[in-house]
């Protein structure tokens, strides 16, 4: 396995007076798909938001591609090649598909073939048919694809996906799984958080389990499959 491109260690964060994360540590290596599993409110989204500096950490270190990013601002982190797809999709509903992609565009990165709308349309053929449609007039599944495509326009080397399967029809979730597979083939690393274990199993190499703001388990997806005890304790499927 290659070197870690994202390392989170000893991270704490608060929301108002609430202590959300305590001593969170995890890493993602190049070309890897890693899933962060946990119940609602366990701290998955906050972990992501802390990594991309939408929530301030109160302690700990975050390193991306060898650089400390825990004191950087969101836009700097994004420009360094760390893409973030939030849970609520948050596409720009007033903007067309092409304009949404334009907002995400960042300069090409050395050693990576830059993403263009045309190249993205090969992966997301649906979007090609609705270039000038405002985001607000797309279905939930199409919006989810657009939000990923938009993030890819920034030419990231790591993408954080916050519950990509939430609220989607099973057939669309299957497409999503295929898409993540394609991204992996392109050499991207992916860190996603999920509650849908079926989906996580399809796409991930490794898994972390988070509970009450702390990482409680770490292992390969295969190991987790074997470990009924852990699954019963934290995921209660």
């Amino acid at each position: 396995m290659s070197d870690p491109i994202l390392t989170v260690s000893g991270v704490h964060s608060h929301y108002g007076r609430a202590h959300i994360l305590s001593d969170v540590a995890l890493e993602v290596r190049g070309g890897e798909v890693v899933v962060l599993l946990g119940r609602n409110g366990a701290g998955k989204s906050t972990t992501f938001k802390t990594i991309v500096a939408l929530v301030r950490r109160t302690a700990g270190e975050i390193t991306f591609l060898g650089n400390r990013i825990d004191n950087r601002e969101s836009y700097v982190i994004a420009r360094m090649g760390l893409g973030y797809v939030p849970e609520e999709r948050r596409i720009f509903t007033e903007l067309t598909v092409m304009e949404n992609l334009e907002v995400g565009r960042q300069p090409a990165r050395e050693g990576l073939e830059p993403w263009t709308p045309e190249r993205l349309f090969e992966i997301f053929p649906n979007l090609a048919e609705m270039r000038d449609r405002p985001g607000g007039r797309m279905s939930g599944g199409e919006q989810q694809m657009l939000t990923i495509a938009r993030t890819l326009m920034g030419n990231p080397s790591l993408v954080l996906l916050d519950e990509p399967s939430e609220g989607l029809a099973p057939v669309i979730i299957e497409q999503m799984a295929q898409t993540i597979g394609l991204l992996k083939q392109e050499g991207l690393s992916v860190l996603l958080c999920e509650q849908n274990l079926h989906f996580a199993r399809l796409v991930s190499d490794r898994a972390y389990i988070i509970e009450k703001g702390q990482i409680r388990y770490e292992g390969s997806m295969a190991e987790l499959e074997e470990n009924d005890e852990v699954r019963a304790a934290y995921l209660t499927v």
Binding site: V52, E73, S74, A78, R79, F92, E102, V103, G104
Partner: peptide, 24 residues
């Protein structure tokens, strides 16, 4: 213009614009 597109995007969700690498 790109600036205008960014402004319209930020009108709707400025935090997301920042998360996409724009210095808001």
């Amino acid at each position: 213009t790109r600036w205008g597109t960014l402004v319209r995007a930020a009108t709707q969700d400025r935090q997301m614009v920042a998360a996409l690498g724009v210095n808001q």
